[in-house]
Design a protein around this nucleic acid. Structure first.
Length: 402
RNA sequence: GCCAACGUAGCUCAGAGGUAGAGCAGCUGUUUCGUAAACAGCAGGUCACAGGUUCGAUUCCUGUCGUUGGCUCCA
């Protein structure tokens, strides 16, 4: 069991599969290698696809702000110790530890009508947080990260629908990504909080309603909410059973007040807008760490950095393999050719350790028949398949997120 | 930040108060092989960093940095 956890350890697999590594010159900050970057970007791309369907708009915001911004948001007091700051032209700047104030600035940048609500602004900005020594852990807790972050601005009446749609999107994505068991936790009002009791009442009721309406089993954690609003967090365990928070949806009554965010209502009056912070996969670094352990490194074909490797048995078969590679690449597949001076056994072992989904072995027999001998990473041998046949099979898996 | 441990070659590790070793990876050559490691040779290290003790420190001591397990924290 412990051995199995060790095999799934994302830090080891990260090295072994050439995905990422860490270097003391930037403590607790991953360097993503080309293969890790591919997976990372493909995840972002996947999320962007969902955003298209779920009505989000993406924005790009600065990484560096005058600390005035966090004085306005209220984070300065609580979190300045955990921020990276610098002085330029005698003014104090801070590297952003979260995107929400930037979203508030965007919201405030024009007069808003109830007609344009809800506004859903996605931001894949890179965040930096000085995490205290002793709390960092591989990709799970880093000092530099990107979240699939978004902020929804809506009316109080829209809270329920927004939370419900978000959870629906989250469940859709977790299903595709292979997470069956998610723990949901509803966190209610803490001692120290902002906002009226009426506001908390309705917000907590809205979250509870969504959870119950969708029949979602969840824990209720009184007093665990953020000072600015109640929230629902989604947790998933790593290889040794430690739970990590990935998704979250948080109502915020504080930021709209502090940034004076409102909209013109139907009757012409100005109304305070509601802000919802939400992240589906959460920190993409953390998500990748948990996901790698969950999959034991076996990325699904659609996102595997290398989908197939051609293994020529002898030099005689290399030219033929080049042709097959060219054909598969032309279809958009990521196919490598192992023409190293190794025995087939060694090439297969190497591909296994890289967790490459398909190994296409080519000897004289395959070459003559215009086929490849297909081996899966689980050891299954599918025998000789026609090139078009294997191409279709892989393409189909890509399209269906199999 | 706290408690504890660890830090030796790109990776995984061994080692000892007298300035270091293996396997894998790398490079060169041989080999042309049927589903998880062919063979040989070569090359590779300020033993994390800084002080201290000592005739002599990579080894012992202290500090710093980093990593790991746990605690606290996680906007």
């Amino acid at each position: 069991m412990l051995e199995e956890a060790d095999r799934r350890d994302h830090r080891k697999l990260g090295r072994q599969m050439n995905l990422f590594f860490f270097d003391p010159v930037s403590p607790a900050s991953p360097f993503f290698l080309p293969k890790g970057t591919y997976v990372f970007n493909r995840l972002v791309e996947y999320v962007r696809g969902l955003y298209g369907r779920y009505g989000y708009d993406e924005v790009i915001t600065p990484e560096l702000f005058l600390t005035d911004l966090w004085k306005t948001s209220g984070h300065y007091e609580a979190y300045i110790e955990n921020m990276y700051t610098m002085e330029v032209d005698e003014r104090e700047y801070g590297v952003k530890p979260m995107n929400c104030p930037a979203a508030a600035i965007i919201y405030a940048s024009s007069l808003r009508s109830y007609r344009e609500l809800p506004i859903r602004l996605a931001d894949f900005g890179r965040l930096h947080r000085y995490e205290r020594s002793g709390v960092t852990h591989g990709l799970m807790r880093v000092r530099s990260m990107v979240q699939d972050d978004a902020h929804i601005f809506c009316t109080p009446d829209q809270i329920g629908d927004e939370v419900r749609d978000f959870i629906a999107m989250l469940q859709e994505s977790y299903k595709v990504l292979g997470f069956e068991e998610i723990r949901y936790a509803l966190s209610l009002r803490p001692e120290n909080r902002v906002g009226s009791d009426e506001l908390w009442d309705s917000a907590e009721a809205a979250l509870t309603e969504v959870l119950e309406a969708s029949d979602l089993k969840h824990d209720v954690e009184p007093g665990e909410g953020a000072f600015y609003g109640p929230k629902i967090d989604m947790f998933v365990p790593d290889a040794i059973g430690r739970e990590w928070q990935l998704g979250t949806v948080q109502l915020d009554f504080n930021m709209p007040e502090r940034f004076d965010l409102d909209y013109v209502a139907e009757d012409g009056s100005k109304q305070r807008v509601v802000m919802i912070h939400r992240a589906m996969l959460g920190s993409l670094e953390r998500f990748l760490g948990v996901w790698i352990e969950h999959l034991a490194g076996n990325f699904p074909v659609w996102i595997a950095p290398v989908q197939a490797v051609l293994v020529p048995i002898t030099d005689r078969n290399v030219e033929y393999c080049r042709g097959v590679q060219a054909q598969l690449k032309a279809s958009g597949l990521r196919v490598e050719l192992d023409d190293s001076n190794e025995r087939m056994n060694a090439k297969i072992r190497k591909a296994q350790l890289q967790k490459i989904p398909y190994m296409l072995v080519v000897g004289d027999r395959e070459q003559e028949g215009g086929t490849v001998a297909v081996r899966l990473r689980n050891g299954d041998d599918l025998g000789a398949l026609d090139i078009n046949e294997i191409e279709e099979r892989i393409l189909n898996e890509v399209q269906t997120y199999a």
